[in-house]
């Protein structure tokens, strides 16, 4: 008897091993533990056995049957849990993605940096009055910047702003002093188009009004903005410049990152790239903006965002930016 039971269990184990789908196991199950199976036969023969035999084999037979059922259940579980995934896992489709305009990305980057320094980002109109674009910025009637060939004048007496600087006056009017604003936006100059010249381009204006602002403060802010933009320590050079709305006025050059200042085509062999016009705000501008220069002073700067985007993405034809040609634009980032 013991031999036979052992034999049955071994044989079940053998047959279960050979199964690889649930249906096979079910067949085996019915053969070994089904109504007509040998074990059931033995089990039903138990009642005809002697008391001694019953005592001797009863629990053995029952346990064997339970063990066999357990083996079948386990086999089914194993089959269920066995991975049966089959597909071509080497397919490789192109991703579908959108894009933001390069200037949008650069503008976001620069405004984020300035926001961390306490600047508020403001925006203003593209169609401007002569007052905000020129007069309020101490640009007198005879200044060459007012010429028709530089400025788009409109038939309604307005003009298209030639810089983002009108936002200096508007912000002073709106928010007073102290003040820290950054104003990104589109500006217009009446220029013929070529690879380096556009009539429509982006700038960002910055203005700080506070008490006891120094030229050293201006340098600090500029250096930090550039360091964050270019993610590296940037050499900065300030040299005299001229803008009617700042006094003193400076041109801020950045050490050329392409040649590390040795001189190359990008920096026209000077080792420096002219990047920012800046200066201490002119007293007349405070007067127009209604800020008391006896109490407050400060600085302003203008940075070419289009130029920055071209440097960042190595865009060599400025016309791409306003073309709307997705062959060029769709490759750009989103963040």
């Amino acid at each position: 008897m013991e031999e036979e039971l052992k034999q049955i269990v071994a044989s079940l184990s053998e047959e279960l091993k050979a199964c690889n789908k649930e249906a096979d196991i079910l067949n085996v199950k019915s053969k070994y533990v089904g109504k007509k199976s040998r074990i059931m036969e033995i089990l039903s023969g138990l009642k005809d056995m002697s008391v001694d035999e019953k005592r001797k084999y009863g629990s053995l037979i029952n346990n064997t049957k339970k063990e066999m059922e357990r083996m079948v259940t386990k086999a089914i579980e194993e089959i269920d849990n066995k991975s049966n995934i089959t597909f071509d896992d080497t397919l490789d489709f192109d991703i579908k993605k959108g894009s933001l305009h390069p200037v949008t990305i650069v503008a976001k980057e620069v405004t984020d940096i300035l926001k961390r320094m306490g600047f508020t980002v403001v925006m203003g109109p593209e169609m401007e009055s002569e007052y905000y674009n020129f007069e309020g910025l101490n640009i007198p009637k005879d200044h060459p910047a007012r010429d028709m060939q530089d400025t788009y004048y409109l038939d309604n007496g307005m003009l298209l702003r030639t810089h983002t600087s009108p936002m200096e006056i508007r912000s002073m009017e709106n928010y007073g002093a102290p003040l820290r604003i950054a104003a990104p936006g589109r500006t217009f100059r009446n220029e013929d188009l070529d690879a380096n010249h556009e009539n429509t381009f982006f700038q960002i204006e910055g203005m700080v009004i506070d008490k006891n602002v120094t030229i050293g403060n201006l340098i600090y802010i500029m250096q930090n903005v550039l360091r964050e933009i270019f993610k590296t320590d940037v050499k900065v050079r300030l040299r005299p410049g001229f803008f009617p709305f700042t006094e003193p006025s400076y041109e801020l050059d950045m050490g050329c990152l392409i040649c590390s200042g040795k001189g190359c085509a990008t920096c026209k062999n000077s080792g420096w790239i002219e990047l920012i016009g800046c200066g201490m705000t002119h007293p007349m501008v405070y007067k127009y903006g209604g800020v008391d220069h006896e109490v407050y002073n400060g600085f302003a700067f203008g940075l070419g965002l289009t130029r920055l985007a071209m440097m960042k993405y190595k865009i060599n034809d400025i016309r791409v930016l306003n073309s709307g040609d997705l062959r060029s634009l769709e490759e750009f980032d989103i963040h």
Binding site: A107, T111, M117, G118, T120, V121, V122, M123, S171, N174, Y175, P178, R180, I181, P184, V208, D210, V213, T214, I215, G216, N217, I219, Y220, I221, Q223, R237, L238, R239, P240, P248, Y250
Partner: peptide, 27 residues
């Protein structure tokens, strides 16, 4: 300032005394 030498100015941090108000959210 120019005769003093613009390269001789040291960059000095500008304290923020701003009240942290965001004037606009358009951008």
């Amino acid at each position: 300032a120019r005769m003093y030498g613009l390269e001789n100015f040291s960059a000095t941090p500008l304290k923020i005394e701003s009240d942290g108000i965001e004037h606009e959210t358009i951008f």
